[in-house]
Design a protein around this nucleic acid. Structure first.
Length: 222
DNA sequence: CGCCAGGCCGTGT
DNA sequence: ACACGGCATGGC
């Protein structure tokens, strides 16, 4: 079922190739800043950093907290996000000498728990960093994917992150290695695409590429 | 004005 | 383990 949805979305929206050529630092910052926040607001904050030449790990770490608050203000939660980003940068230097390449060389099973132990990093942020900044085999689960699976009768309303993640991976059971990474990358990007347009708190099913997938529970509105 | 946005955390049960 | 409120700002 998930595989069919994936292919339908890919057909409808085409290749997303999220964050091609973007530096892993900027991707990581985006992963933090977009928490419960629109991407437009995130771009403003990233623009502020770029204008100050602060898309740089060492430079960011040397930036006073209060200045960071001002720069990150447009994307909200500035106190928490500033502290969280600084904590990550400290981790990056302590663990990998400030090199994303070296960080990426760590095994996922080792790295993921370390990321989750950082302040402001939950499962979605950890997996987004692993997948999009570090190229690991990670599957990102977000509110949109949760709604899609619930509204199609595939998961319970209160399913855990892990349950939804396993279901999502079932779309790529036959894939290995780089192909798996590529599919996970596209899958989350496509879910966000369809999610923004059709999967808000109130579903907007008109014109949705997934509308042709009948809900397994007839009384549930999709 | 009210609701929402690509979550996470501390607290109380 | 799970539910709930708070966190900040901007768009519509």
């Amino acid at each position: 079922m998930l595989r069919a949805m994936y292919e339908r979305l890919a057909e409808a929206y085409g290749p997303q190739h999220w964050w091609p050529g973007e530096a892993p630092l900027e991707i990581t910052l985006g992963a933090y800043l977009t928490q419960n926040t629109s991407w437009r607001a995130v771009e403003r904050s990233l623009g502020n950093l770029r204008n100050r030449g602060l898309l740089d790990a060492a430079g960011l770490l040397a930036t006073p907290e209060e200045e960071l608050h001002v720069l990150l203000r447009p994307s909200g939660y500035m106190v928490r996000k500033s502290a969280a980003i600084r904590a990550f940068l400290g981790f990056l230097f302590a663990e990998a000498g400030g090199s994303f390449e070296r960080l990426a060389a760590m095994r996922t099973e080792v790295l993921r728990p370390k990321l989750l132990a950082l302040p402001g990093v939950g499962p979605e942020t950890a997996d987004a960093i692993l997948l999009y900044a570090l190229g690991h085999e990670a599957m990102v689960v977000d509110e949109y994917l949760r709604r899609v699976t619930v509204r199609h009768g595939l998961t319970e309303e209160r399913s855990s992150y892990e349950v939804i993640q396993r279901l999502a991976w079932s779309a790529f059971a036959g894939e290995r290695g780089k192909a798996r990474v590529r599919h996970a990358n596209e899958f989350h990007a496509l879910i966000v695409m369809v999610g923004k347009e059709h999967c808000g708190p109130k579903p907007r099913c008109a014109g949705c590429p997934l509308a042709c997938f009948p809900a397994l529970l007839p009384e549930r509105s999709i």
